[in-house]
Amino acid sequence: MNPALIGSPSQPVTLSDAKLSAKDLSFYYGTFQALYNISLSIAPHKITAFIGPSGCGKSTFLRTMNRMNEILRNTRVEGELTLDGQDLLAMDVTTVRRRVGMVFQKSNPFPKSIFDNVAYGLRVNGMHKRSVVEEAVERSLTHAALWTEVKDKLNKPATALSGGQQQRLCIARALAVEPEVLLLDEPCSALDPIATLKIEELLFEIKSLTTIVIVTHNMQQAARLADYTGFFFMGKLVEFDDTRVMFQNPHKKETEDYITGRFG
């Protein structure tokens, strides 16, 4: 850890090599404004975590990054959002979701075999060559730290796996199409500490493959895992900085109050 970083006001907001970049991004559910002028950059091959109380907008922001909110009626986005400098909001939505994968709070395996779950993304993208699919399934399950547990029962239904295994399967399924960004919305909140640790370890490992953005209620998870942490409150990004600065010496009083449990 570089001591010079501590307390430095440098915020990774305007990175030249940002993977994702938001500028003055606002979001509305009907007349309710859920996000207010969010500007930030997501650094490539890093883990960025968003924390904040329920309803603060962190999940809304995450879902905006792969246009998941569009399926809701009467919603509206304002401002800029770019992926590698390209306008993400104007991009073909299928392309966005192939490049930006998502894993949800509740594991949601398809009612198919373990193999078919992981192969699903490749097949809908037109890849049917068996050797290629098999190789991708093994590789993805290995990255998701699940391969050794399931390699002898790939044809068993995915729903028979434990909760932690199902969540790792969902991560494997997302990784199979080699996304450039992986978004995770509370991926461990339904898991026990051991299953949580496995997910955290695998996320740390796959940083080299993809850029990770995680929303978590668990501040310690953000502290352990993330390179950068953003604190959302009432639809605003209060503070965004190096994780160690955020948890050791935050610049904003609201951040300090939230992470020390003195809120409200």
């Binding site: 850890m1 501590i6 502290a223 352990r224 994780t243 160690r244 948890f247 050791q248």
Partner: peptide, 16 residues
């Protein structure tokens, strides 16, 4: 002394 304290505080802050 400074570096060791800094490392220790970082571990306390981030790793609980």
């Amino acid at each position: 002394e400074i570096e060791i304290d800094d490392m220790a505080i970082g571990l306390l802050a981030l790793q609980a």
